[in-house]
């Protein structure tokens, strides 16, 4: 499978402030009553975008006209903590998000994003504040997440970012979805499997 080589993501950005934003917040569990990921985009951050009582929009950053079409999400520390639900990055991707910039990421969420080709880069609190300021001043500003130079650029503002080297390589080389590589190892898997104990019902063993 030929995958895109992702070395940068460029687009407008939206800031969703807060630390420890969990995957229940990103996609509430009731929207996971489904057997495909289709249509999840509209439910991203649903319970903080719409008033639970009236259903009226709450003017969440994602819904503000100036951020329409934003493809880079900027948030706080420990982004994506909690549930392993891939529904969370799937919902963000289907909403139009192509890269996430945060203080830090929860591990399972980071892996799920990488597998979908969504780079997750870490930027310090102070530098994220600079980015937020630049975006607030000009929401139409083109923001660029550069994986080769490890910078996030927003007009005059350019700040350093970090990402796990393995993920950076996988994205850059178009190997972010590992299934092709894993399938290539089938022979070695079979040899190892034969050496390991089986799991079987006592009556069958």
């Amino acid at each position: 499978m030929a995958l895109a080589k992702i070395t940068s993501v460029t687009g407008t950005a939206v800031v969703v402030p807060g630390d420890d934003i969990d995957t229940d917040r990103i996609i509430p569990a009731r929207f996971m009553r489904c057997v495909t990921f289709d249509g999840l985009g509209q439910y991203a951050f649903y319970d903080v975008r719409f008033d639970p009582g009236t259903g009226k929009p709450l003017n969440h950053p994602l819904d503000r006209p100036e951020h329409k079409g934003a493809s880079i999400l900027i948030s706080g520390n420990n982004f994506g903590c909690g549930s392993s639900r891939e529904h969370a990055p799937q919902a963000l991707q289907k909403f139009g998000i192509r890269a996430v910039v945060a203080g830090s990421f929860a591990e399972i969420f980071f892996g799920n994003c990488t597998t979908l080709g969504i780079p997750c880069v870490c930027v310090s609190d102070a530098d994220r504040a600079k980015l937020a300021q630049a975006i607030s001043a000009n929401p139409a500003l083109q923001v660029s997440v550069q994986l080769k130079t490890l910078r996030v650029e927003a007009g005059e503002c350019s700040v350093p970012c970090t990402i796990k080297e393995g993920a950076r390589q996988a994205l850059g080389e178009g190997q972010w979805d590992a299934i092709g590589l894993l399938l290539d190892g089938a022979k070695a898997v079979s040899a190892l499997e034969a050496k390991l104990p089986k799991i079987s019902l006592v009556s069958l063993s």
Binding site: F37, S84, R85, E86, H87, P89, I108, G111, N112, T115, L116, K164, G166, D177, A178, I179, L181, L182, L183, G185, A186, V189, E193
Partner: peptide, 20 residues
């Protein structure tokens, strides 16, 4: 390991995951 759905696919198809 708690995993996402793409990794569930990986394990079903290969009995393996790519991990650090």
């Amino acid at each position: 390991f708690g995993i996402g759905t793409s990794q569930v696919r990986d394990v079903l198809a290969t009995q393996c995951m790519a991990l650090d």
